[in-house]
Design a protein around this nucleic acid. Structure first.
Lengths: 108, 108
DNA sequence: CGAATAGTTAAGTATTGACTTGAGTATCGA
DNA sequence: TCGATACTCAAGTCAATACTTAACTATTCG
C-alpha cells in the first residue's frame, strides 16, 4: 500500500472529480495499465497521468512500473482516511443529529 | 433535514475545502448564526455565505432564517451520501484489497 | 539496429473556485 | 421613525485546476 497517511484535504479533493472517480471504478475491476485506463476517457494520456498522480498522492491508488508499462491498482489508505474522518464526525455530532431527528418526529 | 439526496460530486467537493470543514466543526458544537460562524474565519461575511450555500446544496447543513438571523446546523444527508459511496466501493473492492493484503503478507 | 509502444515532462490555455468590494434589503430596538 | 444589525446579491479579481500540445525518454520487438 501507499507509504504515508494522506491529508484529508487531498483525499476529498481527489474524490471530488468525476473523471478520477471513474478511474477508480475501472480499477475496482482489477489492476490496469495507464493507457488501458485512458481508453474509455475522452482525454489525452497526459491528462490521465496527471489524474493518476493526484490519486496516488491521496493514497487512493498505488502504481508500479514494470518495463515500460505502469500498472495501477486501488489502495485502501485514502478510502480509509476519508471513511474515518466521516465516522469520527458522525459519532461526535450524534447528539446534534439525534436532536434534529427528534424535532422532525415531533413535526409529524 | 435537506430535501433531496445531493450528488456525490457536490458532497466530496464541499468536503474538500478546509474552510468549509472548519465551519462544519464549529456547527458540530450546535446551531450557529451566519455572523457568529464567520467570526473565527479570516474572511468577509459574503465569502462565508458562499461557503454556506455550497454546504447546504451538498446536504451537509440546513439553514433557517428567523427574523434577520439565519441559523445554521449540521445535516446528516451529505455525510451519509459520502459514507455510503465509500462503503459501497470498499465492499465491492474487497477482493482487490484482500489480494493486496495477501501479497504484502507474502513479502514479509 | 530501428521502428513502434508506453509513458513522462514542460509549457501554455481556459474554466472553475475562493475570495473581495460595494451597494442593496429586511428586521430589530430605542 | 431612524439607526444599527444581519444578512444578501452582483461584479470583479486572482489563483488553482483540468485540460492540451509538443517534445522527450525508456522498452520491446522484428
Amino acid at each position: 500500500m501507499g507509504r504515508k497517511r494522506p491529508a484529508i484535504d487531498r483525499v476529498f479533493h481527489a474524490l471530488g472529480d468525476p473523471t478520477r472517480r471513474a478511474m477508480l471504478e475501472q480499477l475496482g475491476e482489477g489492476p490496469v495499465s495507464v493507457s488501458r485506463l485512458a481508453e474509455p476517457l475522452h482525454m489525452t494520456l497526459a491528462a490521465v497521468v496527471q489524474h493518476l498522480q493526484i490519486l496516488e498522492e491521496s493514497g487512493l491508488i498505488v502504481t508500479e512500473k514494470t518495463g515500460r508499462v505502469r500498472s495501477c491498482r486501488i489502495d485502501s489508505v485514502g478510502l480509509t482516511v476519508a471513511e474515518e474522518w466521516i465516522r469520527d464526525r458522525r459519532t461526535r455530532w450524534e447528539k446534534q443529529l439525534d436532536k434534529l431527528g427528534d424535532l422532525l418526529a415531533e413535526e409529524n
